[in-house]
Every structure is written in C-alpha cells, then in structure tokens.
C-alpha cells in the first residue's frame, strides 16, 4: 500500500511538473527573446549550456534572465535577454565567464564584436517611427553602441539599419515610442538573412 502511495505521488508530481512544460513547449507560446552575445547556434547552444547562470550573475546591466518553462522544457534555465526590458551593453563578460563555451569568449573590441556577435537584427516600423512621421527623433541612433556601423540616420533623423547590426537591443530599449518602433528580430526566429546565427555559425 505504501509503495503504491509513493509511486502514485511520484507520478502525480511528475505530471504537475511536466504539464506546464508540455503546454509551454507549444511553439505558439514562444516570446521574442535574444540569446546573450556570442551564443552558439540554438541547437548547439542548448547542448552546451549547463544552466549555471553565471552569465546572468556577471551581467553588469542585469540584462540576462533565465527561462522557466516559457520557452519549452529544453530551454529550462537557459539565459535570454528581452531587449525592451534590459538590453545588452556588449561588455562581453558573459562569454568570458561561460564554462562550456555555449557563449563564446569575444574580446571587447568593435571589430571583434561586429564580426562575431549576431544576436539579431534591428527592424524599423516606419508606420510607428516618429522620424518617419515628420517628428525628428533619432534616439535609436544615439543609443546605438556602433553608430554608423549598425545604424545611420538620414533626413529628419530617419533611421536606416545596416547589415552590421549585432542586435544588442539598445535601440529598442531606448525607443521613445510606445509601442516601440524599432525592434530586434532575433536570429533564432524568422527566415532569410535573419535566420539561425548567420555569422557565428560560419566561424
């Protein structure tokens, strides 16, 4: 009797633990997030990351959070960044501290960062952007850590995202429009040039 009680309680706890995991594993539930800079391609990243949380602990901007079940069971405990809440300041400490190389160590140097970091790519929604509505703004350009490399502004401070955008999200974080007119399309979602880690996967 006692063994049966134990086994049934074990099964019950397993179900309670797994039910939300199954629910959240459905792709429709996924929210837009970035992996920290230097992250390997998503599948390799998941197999490398041991969920130690050191990247999150070392992040001076408090940008790196850790998943519960929001992104499915396989992402449990892995780090992510929601740029509208807190964006990456490209200090590159997380890559240094990562024990498994799931986040590659990248020197804190503009050339290195431009060539190796690809967290996503910024996209401007012209129907929301103030500068495209005739009100000069240019905040995203001024927030960008790599101005004129990742983003330029033209007439009336209208932003143009360039190919070398690393996707740190500081523009999205600083956008004064609500909802934000510029957002990072993560490299893990979408298709075409934005898809899976177009730069880091090659190296």
């Amino acid at each position: 009797m006692q063994r049966r009680y134990f086994l049934s309680s074990l099964a019950a706890s397993a179900v309670t633990l797994l039910a939300p995991a199954v629910a959240h594993a459905l792709p429709t539930n996924r929210k837009r997030f970035l992996r920290p800079p230097g992250a390997l391609a998503e599948a390799v990243f998941l197999s490398r990351c041991i969920r130690c949380g050191q990247c999150s602990a070392i992040c001076p901007n408090d940008a790196i959070r850790a998943f519960d079940f929001e992104n499915g069971y396989s992402s449990l405990g892995t780090p992510y960044i929601v740029p509208r809440e807190k964006a990456c300041i490209l200090c590159m400490k997380c890559g240094d501290v990562c024990p498994t190389g799931a986040l590659q160590a990248i020197a804190r140097d503009a050339e290195e960062i431009i060539s190796k970091v690809k967290m996503g790519h910024a996209r401007v929604d012209k129907s929301l952007c103030l500068s495209y509505q005739g009100k000069t703004c240019g905040v995203c350009y001024r927030a960008c850590p790599l101005p004129d490399v990742s983003i330029t502004v033209g007439r009336l401070e209208q932003p143009q995202v360039l190919a070398d955008c690393v996707g740190c999200g500081l523009c999205e974080r600083s956008c004064i429009q609500i909802p934000h007119a510029i957002r990072i399309i993560p490299r893990t979602t979408g298709s075409g040039p934005l898809s899976e880690n177009s730069k880091a996967a090659e190296t």
Partner: peptide, 17 residues
C-alpha cells in the same frame, strides 16, 4: 533532447540557481 536536462532535477544546482 540535446539539452542538458540533468540540471533540472539536481538539488544543489537548483538551490544555487
């Protein structure tokens, strides 16, 4: 799964986290 799931049911890792 190709994902380090042992961390999910290992108390010392959980407590630290």
């Amino acid at each position: 799964t190709g994902s380090v799931l042992v961390a999910a049911f290992y108390p010392p890792a959980i407590v630290g986290r």
